[in-house]
Amino acid sequence: METFEKHLEQQLNALPRERQPDKDLWQGIDLAIQARSDAPQTKRQPVWLASAAVLMVAVIIGFMMQPFSSAPETDPLTGQSLVKALSQQHEKEKSALLVSLEDTPAVTGNWQEQLTELEDAAEAIKAALQEDPNNTALLRMLQSVYQQQFLLIERVHAPKWQQI
């Protein structure tokens, strides 16, 4: 292992300290800033939709974590039933987001691989939640992975005027 680290350090030291872009980027930055300020507010619907979905998941988690002191015992969502409800809600929102963006071309080709990796991470967290179903840290991690999925989908389908 030590030779690997030495080899890695040698390789890193051999890399140039600075790298200049192949072309002048200021023109693209200027166009993106102008386009963003000139764009109508309706272009931001996917951002709003994803934000609303994340907020809804957070509210559901917060509501379900509150103790029910005056309410009768009516089988509140906890443990695996909470995870299942969150997952179903997320899939519904993700499908709606994908449908709303299906006519918008993706700006990168490997985004579905990245989405699959995030789905695998969510499945690993769900497996950990089977062992400890009321672990709030794991629930937050699951929510974070779901939010990352929304952001990934939203970013790869961003209109060209938003790209620099």
Rank of each mutant, 00 (worst) to 15 (best):
S87V: 02
S87A: 07
S87F: 05
S87Y: 02
S87T: 13
S87P: 00
Q88V: 04
Q88A: 11
Q88S: 12
Q88M: 09
Q89H: 08
Q89P: 01
Q89A: 07
Q89R: 12
H90W: 12
H90E: 06
H90S: 06
E91Q: 15
E91L: 13
E91F: 06
E91R: 14
K92L: 14
K92V: 08
E93Q: 14
E93V: 04
E93K: 08
E93G: 02
K94P: 04
K94H: 09
K94S: 10
S95W: 08
S95H: 14
S95F: 11
A96V: 11
A96P: 06
A96Q: 14
A96W: 09
L97A: 02
L97F: 05
L97Y: 07
L97G: 03
L97K: 07
L98F: 02
L98V: 04
L98M: 12
L98Y: 04
V99H: 09
V99Y: 07
V99S: 10
V99L: 08
V99R: 08
S100R: 09
S100K: 09
S100P: 02
L101Q: 06
L101A: 01
L101S: 01
L101K: 04
E102G: 05
E102H: 13
E102L: 10
E102T: 09
D103M: 11
D103W: 05
D103Q: 15
D103G: 11
D103S: 15
T104V: 13
T104Y: 06
T104G: 05
T104P: 03
T104N: 07
A106T: 15
A106K: 12
A106D: 10
A106P: 09
A106C: 09
A106Y: 06
A106H: 09
A106S: 15
A106G: 11
V107F: 06
V107S: 15
V107E: 10
V107D: 14
T108S: 10
T108H: 02
T108W: 01
T108C: 04
T108F: 06
T108N: 06
T108R: 04
G109F: 08
G109R: 15
G109K: 15
G109S: 14
G109T: 11
N110K: 05
N110S: 07
N110G: 04
N110R: 02
W111N: 08
W111S: 12
W111T: 06
Q112E: 12
Q112H: 07
E113F: 08
E113W: 03
E113I: 09
E113R: 03
Q114D: 14
Q114V: 05
Q114P: 03
Q114K: 12
L115K: 02
L115T: 00
L115D: 05
T116S: 12
T116Y: 10
T116W: 07
T116L: 10
E117W: 05
E117H: 10
E117R: 12
E117I: 00
E117C: 07
E117G: 13
E117L: 11
